[in-house]
Structures are given as structure tokens and as C-alpha cells.
Amino acid sequence: NKFNKELQWATWEIFNLPNLNEEQVKAFIDSLRDDPSQSANLLAEAKKLNDAQA
């Protein structure tokens, strides 16, 4: 299933962003679980936040 692979990839990527704190990671993962179809958008937002906090 396409969404499942995207969800797994986005989850792994978010867990490995070095500049997000635990609460931010949890919030993004919760959002992914709530709406897996938004995984690409949520990953992009997480990466933006990660870069901003570098």
C-alpha cells in the first residue's frame, strides 16, 4: 500500500531529524497517524522546522 510505505518513510525521517525536540517529534508522528495521506506535507513541515531550529 502506497500510503503505508510513505507513512513508514515519513515516520523514520521525522524520528531522525536532529533539531526537533521530543514533543515536536511526537506531535508530527501523531499527525501522521491521524492522516497518513498527509505524510509528504507533514514531512516537509517537519524538515522546515528542523532547519529553522538548526
Rank of each mutant, 00 (worst) to 15 (best):
N1P: 03
N1S: 04
N1W: 00
N1L: 04
K2G: 15
K2H: 15
K2R: 05
K2S: 15
K2E: 15
K2F: 12
F3G: 08
F3M: 03
F3T: 05
F3D: 15
F3W: 09
N4D: 15
N4T: 05
N4V: 04
N4Q: 03
N4F: 09
N4H: 13
K5R: 03
K5D: 15
K5W: 14
K5F: 06
K5L: 09
K5S: 07
E6T: 03
E6I: 06
E6Y: 09
L7A: 12
L7Y: 10
L7G: 04
Q8W: 13
Q8I: 08
Q8P: 03
Q8A: 13
Q8M: 13
Q8Y: 13
Q8E: 15
Q8V: 12
W9Q: 13
W9E: 15
W9N: 13
A10Q: 04
A10D: 03
A10T: 09
A10F: 15
T11Y: 14
T11K: 11
T11F: 14
T11W: 08
W12V: 09
W12P: 02
E13T: 07
E13H: 08
E13Q: 14
E13S: 04
E13D: 06
E13F: 09
I14A: 02
F15Q: 15
F15S: 14
F15Y: 15
F15E: 15
F15I: 15
F15D: 07
N16T: 12
N16Y: 05
N16K: 10
N16E: 07
N16V: 04
N16M: 08
N16R: 04
L17Y: 08
L17H: 03
L17Q: 04
L17A: 01
L17V: 01
P18E: 11
P18Q: 10
P18M: 07
P18D: 06
N19W: 05
N19G: 04
N19M: 05
N19P: 00
N19Q: 05
N19I: 01
L20F: 01
L20R: 00
L20D: 00
L20V: 01
L20E: 00
L20M: 01
N21L: 14
N21V: 06
N21Y: 12
N21P: 02
N21R: 12
E22T: 09
E22W: 05
E22L: 10
E22Q: 13
E23M: 06
E23G: 05
E23D: 07
E23N: 14
Q24L: 03
Q24T: 04
Q24S: 02
V25S: 04
V25T: 06
V25I: 09
K26G: 02
K26W: 11
K26I: 12
K26Q: 09
K26V: 09
K26Y: 07
A27L: 08
A27V: 13
A27R: 14
A27F: 13
A27G: 10
A27Q: 14
F28A: 02
F28D: 00
F28T: 01
I29W: 05
I29L: 10
D30N: 13
D30K: 05
D30T: 12
D30V: 12
D30G: 08
D30L: 11
S31D: 05
S31Y: 13
S31Q: 13
L32Q: 01
L32Y: 03
L32D: 00
L32N: 01
R33I: 14
R33L: 12
R33M: 15
R33S: 13
D34Y: 12
D34T: 11
D34P: 01
D34R: 13
D34L: 15
P36G: 03
P36R: 02
P36Q: 04
P36L: 07
P36V: 06
P36T: 04
P36E: 04
S37Q: 09
S37K: 08
S37F: 06
S37P: 02
S37E: 07
S37R: 05
S37N: 08
Q38K: 13
Q38S: 08
Q38T: 08
Q38R: 06
S39K: 05
S39M: 12
S39P: 04
A40M: 13
N41P: 03
N41W: 13
N41L: 11
N41E: 14
N41Y: 13
N41K: 14
N41T: 13
L42T: 10
L42I: 15
L43P: 00
L43F: 04
L43N: 01
L43I: 14
A44V: 09
A44N: 10
A44Q: 10
A44P: 01
A44T: 08
A44E: 13
E45L: 06
E45N: 10
E45Y: 08
E45D: 03
E45H: 08
A46K: 00
A46R: 00
A46Y: 07
A46Q: 01
A46G: 01
A46L: 03
A46D: 00
K47M: 08
K47Y: 14
K47I: 09
K47G: 02
K48Y: 10
K48Q: 14
K48A: 11
K48H: 11
K48M: 12
K48I: 10
K48R: 13
K48G: 07
L49P: 00
L49Y: 05
L49R: 03
L49G: 00
N50Y: 01
N50I: 01
N50D: 04
D51H: 10
D51Y: 06
D51L: 10
D51K: 10
D51P: 00
A52M: 14
A52S: 10
A52I: 12
A52F: 12
A52T: 11
Q53L: 10
Q53Y: 07
Q53D: 03
Q53N: 06
Q53A: 09
A54T: 14
A54H: 10
A54D: 10
